[in-house]
């Protein structure tokens, strides 16, 4: 068709997608506090971040929650995917579709449902409620990713290992796990990114004492534009981008 027109359009669309993020990053190095005129390079906003104890506490919370929720959901995901790959059981199809529901359900529904649930059973809102809440959706992603990997491996490797004298545990540990390892690592990283970025579910389930980084950033944003938010945003963006690049690089190494 109009090849030139289509190319130009796509380039403009990509500029549109990247411009806001780029501006944010650039202005995190701007000396001027209020206006958007460039008045010189500074790292002040980053220094200030590292003196903000509230922020550092929420950073720590976010890191712990992202790591623990990813670890637990990778273990759950591996077990579930293995069971789905290996066995037939009653309600398998229903269970498989149930596993996908946390992905399509809007976050606000999960967040509020869990808030009601925790309050009803008198579970104190804080670190553990956020951790549990995160696992209930990261688990859906890890199962999906690891299951895909299971579908790609040879069904006979486990039997072959057993025929060669391995116990079922050894066969699982030394034949199955290594073949799905790339899936496990990808699942861990993607789960990490999703938990790290989550705001809505944490917002409803975190209570007063515990704040994750996005919840903290949200309360800062409500106060208006501030270069410190630009700086923390840049760091958050970088973490997500670096994790993403690791996933891509890793997948390429495996497939290529």
């Amino acid at each position: 068709m109009n090849k030139k027109l289509l190319t130009t359009y796509t380039i403009i669309a990509f500029i549109f997608l990247y411009l806001p993020i780029t501006v944010l990053i650039v202005f995190s190095f701007n000396k001027d506090k209020i206006s958007s005129s460039w008045s010189g390079f500074t790292l002040d906003w980053y220094y200030k971040l590292f003196q903000n104890t509230d922020l550092l506490n929420s950073l720590q919370t976010s890191i712990f929650i992202a790591i623990f929720s990813s670890l637990i959901s990778v273990v759950l995901g591996t077990f579930t995917s293995y069971a789905l790959y290996k066995f037939d059981f009653k309600g398998k199809v229903a269970f498989q579709s149930l596993l996908q529901y946390p992905i399509i359900t809007p976050d606000i529904v999960i967040g509020i449902g869990l808030l009601i649930f925790f309050v009803l059973i008198n579970f104190t809102l804080g670190f553990f409620s956020v951790l549990i809440a995160h696992i209930s959706f990261t688990m859906a992603y890890t199962t999906l990713i690891i299951s895909t990997r299971f579908n790609g491996i040879d069904k006979n490797i486990e039997d072959a290992a057993i025929d060669l004298g391995a116990t079922p545990f050894k066969a699982f540990r030394f034949a199955v796990i290594p073949s799905i390892m790339p899936g496990i690592i990808a699942a861990f990283l993607i789960s990490f990114i999703i938990s790290w970025d989550d705001f809505i579910v944490s917002f409803f389930t975190s209570g007063v004492g515990t704040t994750t980084l996005p919840v903290k950033v949200y309360s800062m944003i409500k106060m208006g534009v501030n270069p410190q938010i630009n700086a923390i945003s840049t760091l958050l963006l970088m973490t997500s981008l670096i994790s993403t690049f690791i996933v891509i690089k890793f997948q390429n190494n495996v497939t290529g």
Partner: peptide, 10 residues
Amino acid sequence: LTNFLIRTYA
């Protein structure tokens, strides 16, 4: 894959 909140703040 970057934070929703930050993309909006931008």
